[in-house]
Write a protein that binds this DNA or RNA. Structure first.
Lengths: 169, 169
DNA sequence: CACAATTTAATTGCGCACAATCTAAAATGC
DNA sequence: GCATTTTAGATTGTGCGCAATTAAATTGTG
């Protein structure tokens, strides 16, 4: 009997697929809310960062201490691990819908500053309400969410360590 | 003091993003292999199913007992949770590269049968080798993989229970 | 058998992802 | 001071995902 032993390959396949499927399932779970708000899932992720930036800038606009307050496209991209090829057209669409504002930094004409408009900020309470109503009441506990979130980040960091990684360039 | 309490929203945001980021990071981790094999990540997931089908059909081509052996586009779609809008063009591209074969079922002209060609099957040992070399030696243990995989599936199923779900249609 | 309802894919259109390339502004070096 | 290099985004092209529509084959029913 020939022992193929594809068990390793199978195990990896299962994780590949589980991540892939879970990510898309999450998008689908949010679909009703997103449709109501008139945005897409990646746009929602962008908005959540802009909401956070707005709160921070409101609390401490003096950017006291090491708070750099870089609200550029690049900073957004680092945060979401996305590049300009994805973000530029996405932000332009959101701008056309009046949700975000794009402007050039006066101190450096290369950088594009990004911020939520009042219309963009107005979506936050609606999103919050929907999440509370539709996900809190589900059978997914806060502990499970935290656990999964933690495991995913641990995994993410280990993947980074594994990846090629050019020598500091 | 106004207590906003966005903690719930923040927690959910973190999980949304962790899933989203981890899924894309997985794709990036496989990129060197995929480039070498000349395929994309979704195409790799498709191939893994076709490899499995080929093994099964080889072992028991008599489709004994309840083994239905449905190798249609629909069956593939159910397995990967993808619809024809995604799979049809993807499979056509793979067919052009000689990796899969598409044919109509003689007993029902509606269904498209899908199978890996010999060229498609030939990629399996190369993939297996790469996975063993590059992921086994990483600091991600088999236990962690199994744990994360299990958590993801549990989460997936609970998400399904949460989602709208039209009444059995 | 005719014909409506159902099923299975294919098609269309839009919005990401991401690699690769390009552009222009800013920083750097001599 | 000016050429060189670096940096931040924008652009281009390909390939997913997925909703919605369409088309064709099959099934069910009178």
């Amino acid at each position: 009997m020939i022992c193929d032993d594809d068990s390793e390959l199978a195990l990896n396949r299962q994780l590949c697929f589980a991540l892939y499927a879970a990510s898309r399932a999450m998008t689908k779970a949010y679909q009703p809310m997103l449709q109501d708000l008139g945005i897409t899932y990646p746009q929602y992720l962008v908005l959540m960062v802009l909401w956070e930036w707005a709160s921070e800038d409101e609390e401490g606009p003096a950017e006291s201490a090491g708070n750099s307050n870089d609200r550029s496209l690049g900073a957004l991209g680092q945060r979401l691990m996305l590049d300009s090829g994805t973000l530029t057209p996405l932000l332009k669409r959101m701008q056309q819908h009046g949700l975000v504002e794009r402007s050039r930094a006066p101190w450096d004409e290369r950088v594009t500053l990004v911020a939520a408009t009042s219309a963009g900020l107005a979506l936050k309470p609606r999103a919050k309400q929907w999440v509370q109503k539709n996900l809190q009441g589900s059978n997914i506990t806060r502990v499970e969410v935290k656990q999964l979130h933690g495991d995913l980040w641990q995994f993410l960091h280990k993947l980074d360590d594994t990846s090629p990684k050019e020598p500091t360039r």
